[in-house]
Amino acid sequence: MNPLGLSQQLTEAGGTGGLSAPMQIALFLGGMAFLTSALVTLTAFTRIVIVLSFIRRALSTQEIPPTPVLLGLSLFLTLFVMGPTFEQVEKHAIGPYMNKELSAEKACVEAWTQLRKFMIRQTRASDLKLFMEMARLDPVEGPDDIPARVMIPAFVTSELKTAFIMGFCIYVPFLLIDLVVSVILMSLGMMMMPPVIISTPLKLLLFVLVDGWPLLLKSLSSSFQ
């Protein structure tokens, strides 16, 4: 199955060499737009960016770190996590295609095969079963027989579920700090003072003392192994 939807006619024409310049530009721009969607749905980016967003909300620091910083960190951590997979894609698909050993269609199939190996390791069997039933497909013999239209949404669903579980585990300790501060302020009769004024510095102090960022990034990277 060709997950990128490249036409057989394009392959038979030997890539884009037989197309006019405007058509080649249109295909290039379309491919760039597809890469954005592929980054979110076919890689570790979704889990990473959601967990990092949870930690910012748990710390009650509003826009600190700034959104561009979180997105940039998520992107490069995704490249770190996906490094072995991308190396296999380059070895089995991109390299042979650039050397004209594979056609465009076969290169896309090889690239999808390597991505699917990563995705299947991170996808829950229950999510795969759900989308197989929704698609009204018969049970398959192995992962190689799972169609992309089932594999991709099942993978994204599993990533969302895992990200929210990790976010909950991160949120609970900081929530306890908010509760303790609120109780102390009420017992002192300082009900008009917003608890966040006291709890935010305490949460930042706790996060720094436990070396939060390295610990968080290490846990995120390890969650994909």
Rank of each mutant, 00 (worst) to 15 (best):
M23V: 14
Y171K: 03
K203I: 02
F28P: 04
F207C: 06
S219K: 10
R47A: 02
T16S: 14
P22L: 04
I170A: 07
G31R: 00
V89F: 04
I198A: 11
T200L: 09
L176A: 14
S199Y: 03
D211W: 05
L220M: 14
S182C: 08
L202Q: 04
G212H: 02
T200P: 08
L70D: 01
L71T: 12
N99C: 10
L185H: 06
K218P: 09
A163E: 02
V180Q: 01
A104C: 13
A154G: 03
L188T: 05
I25K: 01
G5Y: 10
L217S: 06
F174Q: 00
F76R: 00
E105P: 03
L204W: 00
L209Y: 11
E159D: 11
G15S: 10
Y171H: 13
I48L: 02
L77S: 08
E101W: 08
P22I: 04
I170R: 01
A93M: 04
S219A: 15
L102H: 03
P173R: 04
Q62N: 14
H92C: 07
F174K: 01
L19C: 09
F80N: 05
M1A: 15
V210P: 00
C108A: 15
A26S: 12
A26W: 00
E133W: 08
L75Y: 14
L130I: 11
G15K: 01
P65Y: 01
E87L: 12
L29F: 14
F45K: 00
T200F: 10
F76D: 08
L59F: 07
L206Q: 00
T67W: 09
L128M: 10
L128K: 03
N99T: 15
F207E: 01
K100Y: 14
Q122I: 06
L70A: 11
P194Y: 08
M186H: 09
F207G: 08
A163I: 06
P194F: 00
Q225E: 15
M132V: 02
G5F: 02
K203E: 09
A13K: 11
A125C: 12
L73Q: 04
P195Y: 02
D138F: 12
S74R: 03
S60W: 07
T200I: 08
P22K: 04
K161G: 05
P214M: 06
L160H: 03
L185D: 08
A58F: 06
T67G: 13
M190C: 05
D138A: 15
N2A: 09
P84C: 02
V208C: 08
V156I: 07
L160T: 00
L188M: 14
Q62S: 13
G212K: 00
M1W: 10
V81Y: 05
M186R: 05
I50H: 03
D144F: 10
S222K: 11
P194S: 06
S222C: 12
S187T: 07
